[in-house]
Amino acid sequence: MGNPFGGMMDTIFADKEVLTESYQPETILEREAEIEEYRYALQDVLFGREPENVMLYGKAGLGKTAVTTYILEALQTEVETRDEADELYTHEINCNGKTVFMVVRQLVNTLLPANASEFPKRGLGTGDAFTELYEQLDRLGGTHLMVFDEIDHLDDADTLLYELPRARANGHITNAQVGIIGISNNYTFRTSLSPKVKDTLMETEISFSPYNANELGTILQDRAEQAFAEDACDQSAIRRAAALAAQDMGNARQAIDLLRVGGEVALREEADCVTDDHIGAARERVQRGRLQNRIREQTIHDQYILETIAYLEEGDETPVRSKEIYDLYQDVAAECGDDPLTTLKSIQDHLSDLHMLGFLQRFERNEGLSGGQYYEYELDLNADIVIETRKTIEETRL
């Protein structure tokens, strides 16, 4: 048998990277209003003043991270031309599955001198980590913009969002200035913050709404011109990918994935051009991948709960009450080496959030005086996808 890769040709793609999630476009399309709000929110940095805090809201795939990267790169370029601007440092941390201590420790370790020992994982508390952070900020001076992606998944976000914006006013730092940029997939995240945190932040809120089909079409046209060889992608394929994504979540990431996977389908069929039929064939694969990514984006205990309900569904035991979910959830969490949440109420709160996010169906039951009123839950997605995704996640944690 000859080399299985021998003779393989790529007649479809010119630059496939343009259709990957890691690609950062030089120009952001269809987010002009959000960029304008962002620009005004951070303009004080150019004049050496303390920056405003900014909170971005919107579901995944709506451009929050891409716009943030674009804005911060543009700001850094402009700062370097301004005598009145302080030196600008940006720090980006994904908060999913992290505690405040882990986040502050990570910030400290990015600020420490190259020859310094890392801040220890154990033996010191959150207060010690904040103290070291303030020392390092003052050592460097300048303006520090701290980007906290998936801030809604941070354990005890109140502490972080109360401490950092008040650091200068409370005398913890004198030579440095700090601005917070929070990115949340949860539109209601702010309502969960304590009143004192809301008063402290005084942030600019920028909401990212879903794209419509025309907007997605503009984005896809730009990507297709770069990604595909000449005449290798029909306009009908672009229109269908935009329409399917707009009908679903209004998600640019999903639309771009449809275009990329459609190209892969066409390549496998040895076609010369991506058509709307190839986009249709790509739809199921993209939906499965999108669900897997959404599961990965949830907190670890949300994932354990989804995994628990998936097992119950495999055993034909759903819809199921929260008490039965809680009993099996404890075993699932323990088997993965984590301490389970200790109260039924905490599980019920997570179930409510997962229902709101569309992972679960919830059924209200009323058995009158004898049984009372309660909810039962079942998955609103394929149990196999949940179990498969969780297995992959645990394998990478080993």
Rank of each mutant, 00 (worst) to 15 (best):
L112K: 14
Q136W: 01
H91M: 14
P113H: 01
T126G: 09
V100F: 06
L140W: 13
E132C: 11
N115S: 15
T90G: 11
G142I: 03
L137N: 07
V108N: 00
F130S: 00
D128Y: 03
P120Y: 06
F101W: 11
F101G: 10
A114G: 07
R122L: 09
K121Q: 11
L107D: 09
E132H: 06
L124F: 14
K121C: 02
G97D: 11
K121N: 10
T90V: 15
G127D: 15
R105H: 08
H91Y: 12
R105A: 14
Q106A: 15
A114L: 12
G125W: 00
K121I: 09
P113E: 00
G123W: 10
F130L: 01
E132F: 01
A129F: 10
L111N: 03
L107W: 04
F101P: 12
Y89E: 12
E92T: 15
D138M: 03
P113Y: 02
T110R: 13
N115K: 14
V103P: 05
T131F: 13
T90H: 10
N109M: 03
V104S: 06
K121S: 10
A129H: 06
H91Q: 14
M102Q: 15
P120A: 09
V108C: 13
F130G: 08
N96W: 01
G125L: 02
C95T: 04
T126K: 14
D138L: 05
G127Q: 11
F119N: 08
R139Y: 11
M102P: 08
T131D: 15
G142R: 01
E132M: 13
P120N: 04
P120V: 05
T131H: 14
N109R: 11
T110L: 11
L140N: 01
L124I: 12
G125D: 13
R105C: 03
I93P: 13
Y89V: 04
P120T: 10
K98G: 07
G123C: 08
I93R: 12
F101E: 05
L111D: 09
V103E: 06
T126C: 13
G97E: 07
G125T: 11
A116F: 00
G123P: 04
F130A: 01
V103G: 01
C95R: 00
T143M: 09
L88P: 01
G141D: 12
K98S: 12
L111A: 05
Q106P: 05
E92A: 13
D128A: 15
F119H: 07
G127L: 12
G123K: 10
D138W: 06
E132V: 07
H91A: 07
E118C: 09
P113I: 04
G123I: 09
R139G: 00
A116K: 00
V103D: 05
L140Y: 04
L112G: 01
T90I: 12
N94R: 14
L88T: 02
D138P: 07
H91N: 06
H91G: 08
N94P: 01
T99L: 12
R122V: 09
G141I: 04
R139H: 11
N109T: 09
